[in-house]
Structures are given as structure tokens and as C-alpha cells.
């Protein structure tokens, strides 16, 4: 059995993992997301693609409330993220409650964001021990399993500065998985890597997708999207232009805008 296996028992399989409806995000007078809808079913892998500034990273970050939104609602596993609903009003949650709702959403960043003053192992157990109150011994044991799974069994005591970019990103994935997430968000996980290190990270992500993890991936790796994604979402200017299976979006896009983008990147 895979160590990735998500704790599915807690959630109703009928409810989509991500349910974002009419999401609107503004920076000053600049609308970065306009009326975006995104549904992600359990076990689905969705890749967000699009030119820079199209809002794909912002959309990803709204899903765990790293960005607040000005309109629309976002439910993760059927629960509002960042707000509590009472009749027709949304009350902002206290930051402690926001944190609790984030626990089951793993996030992997473009620049890894490992904690540089902690070893790989300490990075991984920080969440379980500090937030989840998992007994340390158990967390360490599981961290070793996760490290082995991402191919870094011998790097437990290494500090991030002693690891390559690809290794750091794999530790970052292990760190997110240690919280037993029901949803994994990836924000351009290979964009900051040297070309020869991209493959090792994508391999771990592919493995994760195969184990049934629900994933939303912002990426420029068309090959990965083509092979792993169940659905590809093409965004431009803060809206979703086109969505569909990779064969359609990458192989045979309908919209002119999508076609131009695909031609430019392939």
C-alpha cells in the first residue's frame, strides 16, 4: 500500500474536492480573476496552463486562502475556505480556524520554500508534530517513509542548502504529504529547476497522481499535462478560456487564444 494514500474516509466521495464558483479577485483596479468556476472531483488531476499574468497561480493560491477573494465562494471538501456561512452572509474566520481548514491542503511552491534552518527530516515533521500534535516518534517514522518514497532516504539529516533544487522540491512534496492532505496544490513546481532536474520531480508527481491523489497543478510542462492530467484548464486574462481533456486542449484546441498559446509553447 502506498504511503501517499489519502484519508478519504472523512469526506463524502460525492462532494467535489474543489468547488470554486464565480471567484473574483482584484488588486486595486486590476481584476486578476474574473468570475472563475473550477470543480475538481476526488482523485482528479487538473493542470492549469496559460500565459504569465493569466491568473492561474492566483487561482491556485485562493484555494487555500493564501489569497483572499472579493467575490464568489470556494469550498474544499464541501467546506468554505476562509469563511463561515450564516444564511446569506459570509463571516471571515479567525486565523486559527483558517489554519485548521488548511491542514488537509498540501501546497508545493515554485521556489520550494523549505525552512533553511531545519534538516529535511525536521522540515517534514514540523507540520505533523507542531500542528497536528502527532507523537514525534510516529512523525519521524512516517517522515522516513516519505523520504524513501521520494527517493531521498539518505538525505534525512541534510539541510536544504546541501540539496539540489530537484531534491529540495522532492523534500517539499514529502513535507506537504506528511500532513496527509486530501488535495495537493502545485505552483509551477519545476519552473525554478535546472532542466536536468525537472524529470525527478515530475516522476514523483506522476507517482502521486497514480496513487489517486487529487491534484491541481499550475505548470508549463505540456508533456506532464498531456500524460498525467485528467483535465487541462487554459486561462487567459483572469478567466478560464477552455477546459477539457489534454488531448483536446493541447492536441486540438477549439479557441483561437488557446491555439496561439499551445503553438507558442510546444
Amino acid at each position: 500500500m502506498s504511503v501517499y494514500t489519502a484519508p478519504i474516509a472523512t469526506a463524502d466521495p460525492q462532494v467535489p474536492v474543489v468547488e470554486a464558483v464565480g471567484v473574483h479577485k482584484r488588486y486595486g483596479h486590476n481584476d486578476v480573476l474574473r468570475d472563475v468556476d473550477l470543480i475538481v472531483e476526488r482523485g482528479e488531476v487538473v493542470c492549469l496552463i496559460g500565459p504569465s499574468g493569466s491568473g492561474k497561480t492566483t487561482l491556485l493560491r485562493t484555494l487555500n486562502h493564501l489569497e483572499t477573494i472579493e467575490g464568489g465562494i470556494i469550498r474544499i471538501n464541501g467546506r468554505l475556505i476562509g469563511y463561515r456561512q450564516e444564511r446569506d452572509r459570509l463571516y471571515e474566520l479567525s486565523q486559527r480556524e483558517v489554519c485548521r481548514r488548511r491542514e488537509r491542503i498540501g501546497m508545493v511552491f515554485q521556489h520550494f520554500n523549505l525552512f533553511p534552518h531545519m534538516t529535511a527530516l525536521e522540515n517534514i515533521i514540523e507540520g505533523p508534530v507542531g500542528v497536528r500534535r502527532t507523537p514525534r516518534r510516529k512523525a519521524v517514522e512516517r517522515a522516513h517513509q516519505l523520504l524513501a518514497r521520494v527517493g531521498l532516504a539518505d538525505k534525512a539529516e541534510a539541510y536544504p542548502a546541501q540539496l539540489s533544487g530537484g531534491q529540495q522540491q522532492r523534500v517539499a512534496i514529502a513535507r506537504a504529504l506528511a500532513m496527509e492532505p486530501e488535495l495537493m496544490l502545485f505552483d509551477e513546481p519545476t519552473s525554478a529547476l535546472d532542466p536536468e532536474l525537472v524529470g525527478e520531480v515530475l516522476a514523483v508527481m506522476r507517482d502521486l497522481a497514480d496513487s489517486g491523489m487529487t491534484m491541481v497543478v499550475v505548470t508549463h510542462e505540456m508533456g506532464f499535462a498531456q500524460q498525467v492530467a485528467d483535465r487541462v484548464v487554459f486561462m487567459s486574462d483572469g478567466t478560464i478560456v477552455e477546459t477539457g481533456p489534454p488531448s483536446q486542449i493541447i492536441g486540438n484546441p477549439i479557441h483561437q487564444r488557446t491555439r496561439e498559446f499551445i503553438q507558442a509553447v510546444l
Binding site: 487555500n64 493564501l66 486565523q95 486559527r96 489554519c99 485548521r100 488548511r102 491542514e103 491542503i105 498540501g106 501546497m107 511552491f109 520554500n113 523549505l114 525552512f115 514540523e126 507540520g127 507542531g130 500542528v131 497536528r132 517539499a172 513535507r175 506537504a176 500532513m179
Partner: peptide, 9 residues
């Protein structure tokens, strides 16, 4: 952000 994403207060 990384700490927040882990659910840390």
C-alpha cells in the same frame, strides 16, 4: 506562506 500552508498559526 509555506508555514501557513502547513496550517501553522
Amino acid at each position: 506562506e509555506a508555514a501557513s500552508a502547513l496550517g501553522m498559526t
